[in-house]
Structure formats: C-alpha cells, structure tokens
C-alpha cells in the first residue's frame, strides 16, 4: 500500500487499534490518490506545495503527507523522498522525510503556480471532498466557535486547524483521552458509528465523561453531522481530594 509503507513498522504497540486509526484517517486519502488529475496544472508539485502551505484552507484529509506525497507522485523530489521513506521505515526516516519534504515545500512555493490548478483539482477530487459541514464548539468558558469542517476530516484535526483548545496528546493514535468532546445533542450522537472497544477504553479515563462523550480523533465529519454542537469538558474538579473517578456510562 504505497505511501503507507513509508512509516510503518514503528515499535510494536498494542496491535489492535493502530490500523483502525490509520484506515480511518487514510481511507479517503488513498481514494484521492488513486485518481490523481493533474491535467489543469503544469506543475503539480507546485499545486500541492501551495495547498500544504495553507493547510487550514485546503481540503486535506487525514494525513497531509500521504495525500500530498501520493498525489504529487510525478515530482522527482517527492519520488526520491518516497523511495527513501519506503527503504527506511523508522521514525527517524519519517522525520527526515518530513524535513526534506518541508524543504521541497519551500522550494515549490514559487510564483509559477497556476491559480486555477487548485480549484480544478479540488473539483476533480469528486464532489464529496468539497463538501463541508458546520460544527460548533462550546468552550470551557461557555463561548462558542463555529467552524466549517471538510467531510472526511476528524474533529481533532479540524479543531487544531481552527485554534480550538482541544488537546491531542497522542495525536490521534487512540492512546489518550485528551481530545474528549461531548456531543450536545443525542440525535447527533446517534448518527455516529459506535465507539470501538479501544475508544471506549480511552473514554473510561476521560475527564468528565458523559453519556454522549466521544474522542475527537474518532469523530469524522460527514454530511449528516452538519450543525453538530460539541462541548469541551470543563475542568472543575478538585484534584487535591482524589484522582479521577469516571462517571458510569
């Protein structure tokens, strides 16, 4: 599976949840990669570079590197990088890959790109990827922020791209509970797929767990979720008294 090999083989971890996260995050990305269309662009790498440089406005789904690396495909530097990544598959090489890719980005954001290219390739990605839904976050202090989230993107990523104060200690690898969000309307909660055992294991430890709690990294934007409201759990517990005791679900 081409680009996914770039960084496989991290240390052995609890095996059961990695793949799910990965597939969720990368599923749509590989679909995009399967039908690249560069016909409107004289220099695809440039297009991708521009898009990556402004991730908040792009329609990036899942992992930036996967999407970008595979979509670009024909760029020599990227191919070279991809080959290097595939040959050496550890974290170090991921970082190396990242570093070099970043250099690529700075090189490719030259004023040579065609302004039409991005919109064209957006359109050609299929109608779904252009679709965005509106999600409102209710912050700890009660203030609200409404953001638009591209279909296919996780709530954790969307929150980070919009400067919403949602932690993501494990960066979406289902190893912490810091991206805990509370779905404020049970009807929306019911539109989500049931949490996996692994997500439930983490929710067990979530601070201020409720009946409609989910991990932001596991909630993926889809059209039915348009208008969803999510609360960030408020930190009101006195920790001097005791450790956490999650409420029964």
């Amino acid at each position: 599976m081409g680009p996914s090999n770039l960084c496989t083989n991290g240390p052995q971890g609890p095996q059961n949840h990695g793949p799910r996260v990965a597939s969720r995050l990368h599923g749509s990305a590989s679909a995009t990669a399967a039908t690249p269309d560069f016909s409107f662009s004289s220099s695809p790498a440039v297009v991708e570079g521009r898009r990556a440089a402004a991730p908040a406005t792009g329609h990036r789904k899942g992992s930036g590197v996967v999407v970008l690396g595979s979509e670009v495909g024909c760029g020599d530097v990227v191919q070279d990088l991809a080959a290097r990544g595939a040959a050496s598959a550890r974290e170090q090489s991921c970082r190396e890959f990242g570093k070099q890719y970043n250099q690529l980005l700075s090189r490719s954001t030259q004023p040579t790109f065609c302004p039409n290219a991005t919109t064209s390739s957006d359109r050609d990605d299929g109608s779904q990827s252009k679709e965005k839904i509106s999600v409102t976050f209710v912050n700890k202090d009660g203030t609200e922020q409404t953001i638009s989230v591209p279909v296919g993107m996780s709530i954790l990523e969307a929150a980070h791209e919009n400067d919403i104060e949602l932690e993501g200690a494990c960066e979406g690898s289902l190893a912490c509970s810091t991206c805990h969000v509370i779905v404020m309307d049970v009807n929306y909660y019911n539109k989500l797929e049931d949490p996996t055992d692994e997500e439930n294991d983490m929710l067990d430890l979530a601070f201020g767990l409720t009946e409609t709690s989910r991990l932001g990294c596991q909630v993926i934007a889809k059209p039915e979720l348009d208008g969803m409201r999510l609360a960030l759990p408020a930190a009101t517990r006195n920790f001097a008294v005791d450790g956490f005791v999650p409420k029964p679900h």
């Binding site: 680009p3 996914s4 770039l6 960084c7 496989t8 083989n9 991290g10 240390p11 052995q12 971890g13 609890p14 095996q15 990695g18 793949p19 996260v21 990965a22 995050l25 990368h26 899942g62 992992s63 930036g64 590197v65 996967v66 974290e91 991921c94 970082r95 890959f97 990242g98 960066e171 979406g172 690898s173």
Partner: peptide, 9 residues
C-alpha cells in the same frame, strides 16, 4: 502495527 504516517504529517 501500522505507525500511521499521520504522525509525520
């Protein structure tokens, strides 16, 4: 375990 590329991203 598939170490998601996600991290690099």
């Amino acid at each position: 375990r598939v170490r998601p590329l996600h991290h690099a991203a």
